[in-house]
């Protein structure tokens, strides 16, 4: 079982790898072709996002101009003005942020706790119970929405953020699955030593396991955050008052029943998506390192 340290070392040598080699003319030509191809594909991939971003600064007639142009001829912030006038984005941003952060924080803790139990404690029913967790990943959300709504009504949580936070924070099958793989990858010897020293399970978990899980937790955290941030169906069903609305609901308002308000819609979608891309840009190193272990066991 490869430990996280050996992986970290090998990665370092991998990233230094190209510099160690000299640049032959042939190799140089190859690298140029590689970069041209990759850059072309990268632009193609990012084009729709760029189109969204740039269209949010276009007047309506230009969004549908023929032939289409990427850059606005006339820059305008009309879409943003309409978006901010039509919906309370500051509040929506706050709602989305605190829901996603709370869910992510609590769910990281609860799923790594469960993962630890599944990976390290032998108890009756461990495997079948884990199977149940896995199987729930295959349940389409639409199947359980009505009973879930009834339960929320019963708890008095309709039109509160608790309806969104509590289920997501307390139940995350994907998270348990992913974290279980990582805990299994930690060498047992470390814990056995600690156990001989008389440390309790709780102590081992908090002071030994959790710190070692830092990187995968970052990755899971980002995926959980992303899922919460983009969650549309749950907030749509459970929230009634627009003071409680999250960003996806605010964005969707501009779609309308019959026709969309395209300038405001482009501005609103950009407002909702940009923070995520910025966050990824900053955190991508962490994410990739975090996932480096995932799937190494399954």
């Amino acid at each position: 079982m490869s430990t996280s340290t050996t992986i970290r070392n090998s990665r370092r040598s991998a990233s230094e790898d190209p510099k160690r080699r000299g640049l032959h003319p042939r190799r140089l030509a190859g690298r140029t072709i590689l970069h041209v191809a990759l850059a072309a594909c990268a632009i193609l991939m990012a084009l729709p996002f760029l189109w969204m971003l740039l269209s949010s600064f276009k007047p309506l007639t230009e969004i549908f101009a023929q032939p289409p142009a990427l850059f606005p001829l006339e820059w305008t912030t009309e879409g943003y003005e309409k978006a901010f006038a039509g919906a309370d984005f500051v509040r929506g941003f706050w709602n989305s942020t605190y829901i996603a952060v709370t869910v992510t924080a609590v769910s990281l803790l609860t799923s790594s706790m469960a993962a630890y139990a599944f990976a390290r404690i032998e108890f009756r029913g461990s495997k079948p119970l884990f199977m149940v967790f896995l199987a729930t990943m295959m349940v389409p959300a639409q199947l359980t929405i009505i009973p879930l709504y009834i339960i929320m009504g019963w708890l008095g949580w309709v039109d509160t953020h608790a309806a969104l936070i509590v289920p997501a924070a307390l139940f995350n099958a994907f998270g348990v699955f992913l974290m279980r793989q990582y805990v299994k990858g930690i060498p047992k010897e470390l814990e056995e030593a600690a156990e001989l020293d008389g440390a309790s399970r709780f102590r081992i978990f908090t002071t030994l396991i959790l710190p070692l899980l830092r990187t995968p937790l970052t990755a899971l955290g980002i995926f959980t955050f992303l899922g919460q941030w983009n969650n549309f169906f749950g907030p749509l069903i459970f929230l009634n008052s627009d003071a409680n609305f999250t960003l996806p609901l605010l964005v969707n308002q501009f779609k309308g029943q019959y026709g969309a308000d395209w300038t405001a819609l482009m501005a609103a979608t950009t407002l909702a998506a940009a923070p995520l891309l910025i966050m990824f840009g900053i955190a991508q190193r962490q994410i990739v390192e975090g996932i480096a272990l995932s799937g190494s066991k399954s």
């Binding site: 639409q142 929405i145 009505i146 709504y149 009834i150 929320m152 009504g153 309709v158 549309f232 169906f233 749509l236 069903i237 009634n240 008052s241 627009d242 609305f245 609901l249 605010l250 969707n252 308002q253 779609k255």
Partner: peptide, 20 residues
């Protein structure tokens, strides 16, 4: 006033089934 900003039928059905 409650604004329903998406799948109207799913929202109303959930609310009716939940008595809310």
């Amino acid at each position: 006033f409650q604004a329903v900003v998406g799948d109207y039928q799913a929202k109303m059905l959930s609310q009716l089934a939940g008595g809310a």
